[in-house]
Design a protein around this nucleic acid. Structure first.
Lengths: 221, 221
DNA sequence: TCTCCATAGTCAAGAATATGACTACTCAGA
DNA sequence: TCTGAGTAGTCATATTCTTGACTATGGAGA
């Protein structure tokens, strides 16, 4: 008890001073990344909340997902902070809409964000949890879900493939990457494609591995 | 206004009845998947919260991430619900600990979860957002982060590679998958490995693509 | 004419995750 | 003997994400 006073020693927190590996170690960062995803999405032009909500799946985000409610809320907040400016588009035969574009302040924020260090990503997937536990639960439903996931992944690869072809126009990939004016979306799209392919292949491989055992096990019963 | 009364028409919600693609379409599910990740992690044996917090990165979860605080809270809840049972381990020279194992009810819950349909996963990664915006912000810091991420991914591939070798012992993969008693962790680990490899390759490819342009652009300045 | 689908949103509440502190003990090394 | 790092945990608050409703209009098709 020689420690008199002993007031607030933040460095005592073992979780903040990651000891061994702690893959990636997040140096804090401002969290809130949906806002940046939205800003990035609006680099492609003016969009309304509704349009983003529809397009968020395919375009900006093989790497960010958000429900419409979140998008609307985020758009409102960003506008309030002056990072976006919105304007009303009057339409005939359908409701008017508000479209948004990135302001100077918005660009500055994106720049700040891009320069800040990133925390690492992880997969976080229900299905993987199920596979992890597959030896202790009935395998059949897990196999069914793996098959389904493989099919979904295949559908996505097709969509992404088309998107990539559209983005690069009539150039081949190498030339596009050298000379295109906007390659960011192409690069991310490529990541999405690789991910979906991997997912599909892994799912099918896992199905094979499990299905074989199932029949073996059944004989033993 | 022929709709008299018109009370509560839930089917009117366009977000619940996904219109076009809406990749995967989540059929609800009970959310709360951390609990199942914890249950799955404890299939490998008894662990304390601390052990899980350390090991969560490498073992169970290339596919689920949680802070220690969350783990402790979840463990307590699961024990309260009877899905886990904990017991105190008295230790010398260090604090005692409480380790947990899955109860019958826990197995039942896992089984229920495994049979329920999974919602699709998405990547959700800060770095991808930055790459998406890379044409409109300085590329240098983004490139630096891509390099760093590639290095992290490489480190992970090595750890996972070792883990895989340990899991399959002296069998080769095919034989292990046919005859091993517990292949779930092996399968998920394999997924993690593929993911990290892909990540690394993509990062390096993106760096190349961007670095080349940078020098081109600099000449133009 | 009634239903359903698509456009274009909003609101409220709750669950899940993340952040930032703290306690307490032990051992190794400067 | 003091510092720092590892083991083992807890508490409180904040932020973010998800769920479930609702409103309103126009057009296509049974």
């Amino acid at each position: 008890m020689t420690e008199r006073g002993a007031e607030r020693k933040p460095w005592r927190n073992p979780w903040l001073k990651p000891p061994v590996v702690r893959w990636g170690g997040g140096r804090k960062g401002v969290t809130m990344a949906l806002r940046h995803a939205v800003l990035a999405a609006l680099l492609d032009g003016e969009f309304s909340g509704y349009q983003l909500a529809k397009g968020f799946d395919i375009g900006v985000a093989n790497f960010w997902h958000a429900l419409p409610q979140q998008l609307y809320a985020e758009l409102a907040r960003l506008e309030g902070e002056g990072l976006l400016s919105g304007r009303e588009i009057v339409q005939e035969g359908r409701p008017n809409k508000r479209v948004f574009q990135v302001t100077e302040a918005g660009f500055a924020e994106l720049e700040r964000f891009a320069a800040a260090s990133a925390k690492p990503s992880f997969i976080r997937d229900d299905l993987l949890v199920k596979v992890q536990a597959v030896d202790d639960v009935p395998a059949a439903p897990v196999i069914a879900q793996l098959r389904e996931r493989a099919a979904v992944a295949e559908a996505k690869t097709e969509v992404l493939g088309k998107l990539l072809r559209r983005l690069r126009g009539d150039l081949d990939e190498e030339e596009f990457l050298r000379t295109g004016r906007r390659i960011g979306p192409y690069l991310t799209c490529r990541r999405g494609l690789a991910f979906e392919r991997e997912t599909r292949e892994w799912c099918l491989w896992a199905v094979e591995s499990l299905a074989g055992r199932e029949s073996v096990r059944r004989e033993g019963e």
